[in-house]
């Protein structure tokens, strides 16, 4: 597995519970089933892996203790995670949001826009698709249309501002 954020590939601070030595680490990801029984511990960061069928209602009670939510993307064509990520953000989750699965570079800007911070890629995907392709994909469309997504600006927003300026100008 390889971790990627908007700056490129990076090392993963988190380990999966059960992995060798994970218990000693500062940042651990547990399976969703273990979440209710896992307490937040001082000085340690807790993350959870969830399938894309988990609801916001199931997760919201745990937001406080969670530093990371990792949403599984079972295939690049399964777009449920985009909507779930967006729902989690709108419900107020402020921690790291991770997309975990074989996404492709063209989906990287979509994931960021829907509120994700990082992508955890299978090794095979990362081997075929070097860092440069991921970073390039972020700049492919400089100004998308939709407003209200986690992006610096949008076409609708730019037009709105132009109207505002025209009205005051």
């Amino acid at each position: 597995m390889k971790l990627l954020d908007r700056n490129g590939f990076r090392t993963d601070d988190f380990s999966r519970a059960g992995a060798d030595g994970a218990a000693r680490l500062d940042a651990v990801i547990v399976p969703f089933a273990d979440l209710p029984s896992t307490a937040a511990r001082a000085g340690k960061r807790l993350g959870v892996d969830i399938p894309n069928t988990v609801t916001v209602e199931q997760l919201a009670p745990h937001f406080e203790k969670l530093a990371l939510i990792g949403i599984a993307f079972p295939a690049s064509t399964d777009g449920r995670g985009f909507s779930l990520g967006r729902r989690l953000r709108r419900a107020g989750f402020k921690g790291l949001l991770r997309a975990s699965g074989p996404l492709i570079p063209d989906q990287f800007p979509y994931a960021l826009a829907c509120g994700f911070d990082e992508i955890e890629l299978p090794d095979a995907s990362a081997a075929r698709q070097p860092e440069s392709q991921w970073l390039q994909a972020l700049g492919a469309i400089t100004l998308p249309y939709q407003r209200g997504y986690a992006r610096p600006s949008s076409i609708f927003e730019q037009r709105r501002q132009a109207r505002k300026e025209a009205a005051h100008g």
Binding site: S76, T77, D78, G79, F82, S83, R86, Q107, P109, Y110, A111, A113, C114, I141, P144, Y145, Q146, Y149, I155, F156
Partner: peptide, 13 residues
């Protein structure tokens, strides 16, 4: 048309 073009959330329905 504009709103739906390359929609970040709805391109993998």
């Amino acid at each position: 048309r504009q709103w739906s073009s390359l929609h970040p959330e709805f391109s993998f329905l």
